Simulated assay, not measured.
Amino acid sequence: MALDDASVGTVPWTIKGELILNCNCTVFCPCVVSLGKHAPTEGYCQAWSGVRIDEGQYGDTDLSGLNVGLMLEIPGLMARGNWKAAAYIDERASEAAYEGLVNIFSGKARGTTGLFGVLVSEFLGAERAPVIFETEGKARRLMVGKKIQGEVVPVEGHKGEDIVVTNTEYWMGPDITVATATKGRVRAFGRVWDFDGRSAEICQIDWKGPR
């Protein structure tokens, strides 16, 4: 059953899982430590992201096992807003789960992703799609048909251990694994992006709302 607009920002929700992101920054994204106060390395941000939901609820609706793909375009400083965003929702989602995920990723559901409602000036849309999130060894892959095809791997640090930026106030989560894209291709909404070799992030997420 569809929720009326007035109730959307009052529904309790949770998402636990993993997020991967690849952007056009040539070195690790400065937004993580500057919290959006430092410009992206190219002066603007173009990015794709994937979310694997291991456990999740939107009200009484189970979101566990679903995947979401995102496309983001930010003209300058992240904190100044004017973002454009689009979402691809797992085609396996029930109608209630689809609505819940659209509300979460558009910011309408408030909580952790509520900042999208403030920063995104143009939500390009949401659509159902085959969203595949795979892990093989340390590599993570996101495939949304021919629209997003990406793979990210952690950057090795001392003794081969992953480099992790810990204890941040970054909105996605406090611990961000520094990664790079072995493939980063977007062909969607008139965008043609290739970010192979560019900055990437891996983050364990524990999000909730509406507060």
Rank of each mutant, 00 (worst) to 15 (best):
G76I: 09
I53E: 00
E136Y: 00
A79Y: 09
V131F: 07
R92I: 12
D54F: 08
G125M: 07
R92H: 14
C45R: 01
A96I: 13
K138V: 15
E122P: 00
L101R: 05
A96N: 11
A47T: 02
L115D: 10
Q57D: 08
Q46A: 10
Y88Q: 11
G125C: 04
Y88G: 06
M78H: 07
V68Q: 06
A96Q: 15
W48V: 09
V120F: 00
I53M: 01
V131W: 06
M71I: 15
R141G: 07
V120H: 00
C45Y: 04
Q57H: 13
E95Q: 10
I74W: 03
E99M: 08
G50D: 11
R140I: 03
V51S: 02
A85M: 14
E55N: 14
P130A: 08
A93E: 10
Q57T: 15
T135A: 15
N103L: 04
C45E: 10
I89M: 01
S121G: 15
R140V: 03
S49P: 06
E122R: 02
R92P: 10
Y58R: 05
D90C: 02
C45W: 05
E99D: 12
L124G: 02
C45N: 06
E134S: 11
R52A: 14
T135I: 09
Q46P: 02
L63D: 00
G117Q: 01
D60K: 13
A96M: 09
K108Q: 15
F123E: 03
A86S: 12
E73D: 14
E99V: 07
Y98H: 12
S94N: 04
D54G: 12
E127S: 05
I74L: 10
P130S: 06
S106F: 03
R141L: 05
G114M: 04
F123W: 12
G107D: 06
E127V: 03
D62P: 04
E95A: 14
V102W: 00
L77S: 03
S64G: 12
R92A: 15
A139W: 03
G137Y: 03
E127T: 03
L101D: 07
Y44W: 09
T61L: 04
A129N: 01
L77A: 08
I132K: 12
M78W: 09
R92T: 12
R141Q: 07
F105D: 10
I74S: 08
K108H: 11
A93N: 05
A86Y: 04
L63I: 12
L72D: 14
K84R: 14
A96K: 10
